[in-house]
Design a binder for these strands. Structure first.
Lengths: 120, 120
DNA sequence: TTATATATTTAAGCAAATTAAATATTATGA
DNA sequence: TCATAATATTTAATTTGCTTAAATATATAA
C-alpha cells in the first residue's frame, strides 16, 4: 500500500479521468476502479471521495442522477461538457507532473559525480 | 506551472532524493534544483520547505551545519545513515506511485468500449 | 447469525501546504 | 543612486484537503 500522502491533490483529477473513460459511474464504483487499476495500492477513502464529487457537481463539472438498483440507492455521475474540457487539461497536467516526478526521482548512476554533472 | 496541489505529500521524499544525490545542500539550493529539474514547473515554497527540513532533522534523518558564505548565512543539510535508509524506501515508493499514476491516466484508445474492455 | 460486500453521507480533527511578512546582504540595471 | 532582483532563512496565521469514524441500510455468503 502506497503511503497515503502521495495521492493528495490528485484525487479530483483521477475522478475526472475515470469519468472520461466511462460516461457513468457511481462513487463506490470509482473507489473499486482505482483499487483495481492500482493493484490495491491506492484506496480512495469515502470521506475524501464523496465531498470531491459534490464539489465537482457544484462547480458544474459533473451531473448526478440517483437511481435504485437492487434495492440500493446509487448516484451516478457524468461529465458535463465543461467537465470534459477541464478533465482534458487536468489529466494532461497530472501526466506531466508524473513525468517530472520520474525525472526528479531518476536513479543517479554515480552520485559522487553530481557536482560535476549538475554544476555546484 | 503545474497546479500546486500535485506536489502535496511528495516534498519530503523529493528532499530526501536530492540529498541522496548530493551529500550537502542548503534550503535555497534545494528549491533551485527542483525548479531546474522540473523546467520551472515545480516551485517549492519556503513556507513548505523549511519546516520540512526541520522536521526531517528532528526525526534524525538529516543533520544541519550552519556556515557563513559571502557574508550570508547558510545551513547545509546532509542525510544521516538512517536518512539514507528512509530515502531509499520513500523514493522507491514514490517511483511506484508515479508509475501507478501513469497507468491510471493512460489514454484510453476508445472510451466507448470501456464497458466491454473493463467490465461494467 | 455473523461477517462481508454493497452504497452513501457527513462531522470532527489533523496534517500539510499557502500566504505573507520579517530580516539581511549582494548584485544589477535604469 | 535608487530601485529591484537575487540570495538566504525564519515563522505565524490561515486555509485546504484528507483521515477517521460513526450513522444508515440492504444483500449475500459462510
Amino acid at each position: 500500500m502506497i503511503s497515503k500522502g502521495y495521492i493528495n491533490g490528485t484525487i479530483k483529477t483521477i475522478v475526472l479521468k475515470l469519468l472520461s473513460d466511462k460516461n457513468r459511474m457511481y462513487g463506490y464504483e470509482i473507489t473499486q476502479r482505482v483499487a483495481a487499476l492500482s493493484n490495491d495500492e491506492i484506496k480512495l477513502t469515502y470521506g475524501a471521495l464523496y465531498p470531491i464529487l459534490y464539489k465537482l457537481e457544484n462547480d458544474g463539472l459533473l451531473v448526478a442522477t440517483s437511481e435504485i438498483v437492487d434495492n440500493r440507492a446509487r448516484k451516478y455521475y457524468s461529465l458535463t461538457p465543461k467537465g470534459k474540457e477541464v478533465a482534458k487539461e487536468k489529466v494532461s497536467e497530472l501526466q506531466k507532473f508524473a513525468e517530472t516526478l520520474k525525472i526528479i526521482l531518476m536513479p543517479n548512476p554515480d552520485s559522487r559525480l553530481s557536482s560535476v554533472a549538475w554544476g555546484s
